[in-house]
Amino acid sequence: MWDLIINPFVTVLTLMYRIFNNDIVLAIAAFTVIIRLLTSPLLIQQQRSAKAMQELQPKLKALQEKHKNDREKLAQEQMALYKENGINPLGGCLPLLIQLPILLALYSAINHALGASPYQLIDLSGRLLLPGLDSLVPLGDTWAGMNLTRPPTANPTYALILPLLVLVTTWLQSKLTLPAPPPPSGDGKPDQAAQMTRSMTTIMPLMFGFFSLQFSVGLGIYFVVSNVVGIAQYTLMGTAEWGRLFGRDPKPKEITSVTPSTTEKRGKRSDPVGFTPEKANGTDTVSNGTMTKSLPSGGTPSKKTKASKKAGAK
């Protein structure tokens, strides 16, 4: 199974090397761009799904609160809520799961194609699926005075700029694509998942920067190109929040779809998904079975409320 993934990758990378006149860095860059573009529908789907899920969070929390002692009921209510809002709860993680093997395969393909040692090179044999590419092996391993098969520390001093670039571009990508902060929970405590996501913005760049210090320069180039293309993709999709770089958090997003669940409809109508004006911290209103919540900016409760006449109507 591994060969089915890696062999086409190694072949295309080598083909790129030929197309770009034996320039390995251009080949890596072009190949990374192609892969990122091919997987962009998955990225778009993931972004959409993540956004929808984020908008549904207040309701999910309310459901959790309401059915905290009945897990089965909670599951039913959650599924019903997803269904009514046309959300696939796995819609966010499935595209990511599909992308991960692709990115890992790309990483391995670069590692294999550079063929820095006898073991690496013999493992490359038989992977090139197009005739005539064997004569290109091993691919060029020198670029701008750096040996691409060696880590930056075993290259000229200026190669150390690469881990720095990896760190900066990883941070930039994380910063720009960080989800909007959800409101604090009913008890006023900050959302743990959001806190974790924010701390990842710091940890991930450091981790990748450290990795690229240890890995070959060729892989560092892949990380940088991949990050830059990722930033461009998020920008084109309108999900990159460039304002964050200047201390501006994204504007609050309003939740309007508040339909009582199917199971609720069947039985006697109870409190709308557990919300009470007291719990709502003054930001939630209940109106004819319709709840509207305005997500505050930067965690500050918004005074604005808006009732949807359509949503929640019996």
């Binding site: 199974m1 591994w2 890696i6 799961l97 890992l104 006898p118 073991y119």
Partner: peptide, 18 residues
């Protein structure tokens, strides 16, 4: 998917040189 992911991540990345 996890199987594919595991297979990819655990793909034989050989240690050593020769």
């Amino acid at each position: 998917l996890l199987l594919i992911l595991t297979a990819t991540a655990c793909a034989p990345v050989r240690q050593g040189t020769a």
